[in-house]
Design a protein around this nucleic acid. Sequence first.
DNA 1: TTCCAGGGGTAGA
DNA 2: TCTACCCATGGA
Length: 308
Amino acid sequence: MAKNQITQLSIHPDAPFDFDYTAYSHGWVVLSPNVWNPERRELQRTERLAGGKVVSLLIQGPGSVEKPEIRIEVSHSGKLSAGQEQEILAAVAHMFRVDENFAEFYKLCKKQGRRWKNLARGLGRLLRSPSVFEDVVKTICTTNIQWGGTKRMVAALVETFGTAQDGNPAFKTFPTPHAIAEVPPERFGKMVSLGYRSDYIHLLARRVSSGELDLSALLDPAISTPELKKKLLAIKGVGNYAAATLLMLLGRYDELPVDSVFRQFVSKKYFNGERISDPEAQAIYAGWGKWKYLAYWFDIWEGFDEKV
DNA sequence: TTCCAGGGGTAGA
DNA sequence: TCTACCCATGGA
């Protein structure tokens, strides 16, 4: 077997950009196939390119917030074409939201004062997956289950339906829709313990694999947020909480992810632990306009102003 | 054993 | 639009 080649790629995002906080911004960093090394501050991930080639990515942020750089060490067999390099660069830029503009959010943060103004030094980007399919599947795996269960289910999907790189069987890609769709639904349910989510994820994989549903079209900025939410709610397994999470992953922060964590947090912090209605809880963030999700996220993530 | 989790679908009103 | 009820799975 030929030894894998290494190719170094690099992205230079506009400042301010904080690699560490973006990588570690929420639970996605520890969901397979992502592997985060906290000591070395590296994100490792195995990726399948459009033509089927499987590569391993080691993603680092050696620059500073003011002179940011995302460095990608690609381990691959054979030669990497210019098109494949572009594909990898685009995938990583998408994961780290290199093209998103947070100036308006930072303005609100500075106005808010105290700890909020710390966000304006390049935070606000929440890590996402290279594909919308992966983000929808992972989001469905966060519903009505504890976080440990989410990690278990996603890891099982990758282990069972992912593709390993030659010579590197320990790490696999996130499954393609086709890899899931080609297995009969009943068998799929038995192969990975996803509970009642199994049918939703298999149906999603079938619709995407057949071309009936184009999830990448959801990234179109021309779609209004209400219209986008409607499209998300039309996906079986996606309700209000999951739609708000997916809107965030698609770069829209208008909606709050109302789940048990949100309810408990707002009740404890703003209502002395009293039982409150969802509209009362949501009203806390009304002043943040189209940035409500981020306001809530950094309200609950108290550690953001310490080094991760 | 029972409860419930980073809820959602469906039927019926 | 709102409510009641059901839905697998596994940890606490």
